[in-house]
Amino acid sequence: MKWWITGAVVLVAAAIVPTFLDPTGYAIRVLTLALLFAALGQAWNIVGGLANQISLGHAAFFGLGAYTSTILLINFGLSPWIGMLAGAAIAAVAAYLLSFPTMKLRGHYFALATLAFSEVLRVIAGSWTSVTGGPVGLSVPFSPDSFWLLQFKSTMPYYYIMLGALVVISGVFVWIRHSSLGYRLRALKENPEAAEVVGVNTTQVKISAAVISAALTATLGTLYAQFTYFFDPEAVFGIIPISVRAAIIAILGGAGTVVGPIIGAFLIVPMEEMANVLLSSRGAGLSQLAFGVMLIAIILIEPRGILALITNGVSRLRRRKSS
């Protein structure tokens, strides 16, 4: 098996890259965001890729993570590291409760239900002003360079934290895929009725995947809040900025594969950032437009993502050479 050598080389490269960059510069900021969104796509991948449950509501858990840690920090001075665990716990409970109405739903219905759930939380965050700051949002109290309070002047530490998050979540993804839960999820994905018949408790399997995915997503919400210092309900509970983006990142690269979300995030995030810089005010619309066009294109050309496109191309070339 050579895959782990490749993985180790990529990881070492990822660890060395920032030393060549300006630690407060723009490039490292884009890479840090790309790592964060790769991790988000990976967390979505556990539900969307392994279980084939198309969630359009992962912003619900992302936002819960961001709001929980920030509210605890503002009101009680609690370290975001602890807030992150609290957020993950709340998101896990939320995912567990949400599984009751969504347990039997498939395809479009599941997507609709998860979308509505994240909208419920967005509305609450926007109207419960005394706690959440309402539509204005929350600012993380500024106290730079404290590991305990997860705040740094330089972008470099954030880069390594996001890299760590991506490695951990990818590790969880790989571990699930090779565990008995992973085999049950695969059975569920291929044919839910058949899985049920051979004795897979499909309900329990779905709930396990949803709860793990939600908790991981919430930790990323906390990291996002600490990295950006400021967020409003739309930024963390938004359908397009979080839920759809998480799904697109995984699908564009290749849903169900461990490298898919990483490829997706490193294509989409730099592209969006570049468009924003080059095209200023109108750029926002244009980069989003490109985002939508890419989504439609990949679905029509190869719904299994860029990774499948590449492997198909490579095997076709090989066949041509050998013949």
Binding site: N52, G107, V244, A247, F291, G292, L295, I296, I299
Partner: peptide, 12 residues
Amino acid sequence: VAQIFVTVGLLI
């Protein structure tokens, strides 16, 4: 998944 994201893409 393809049906959902074609229309989501159209929305964007």
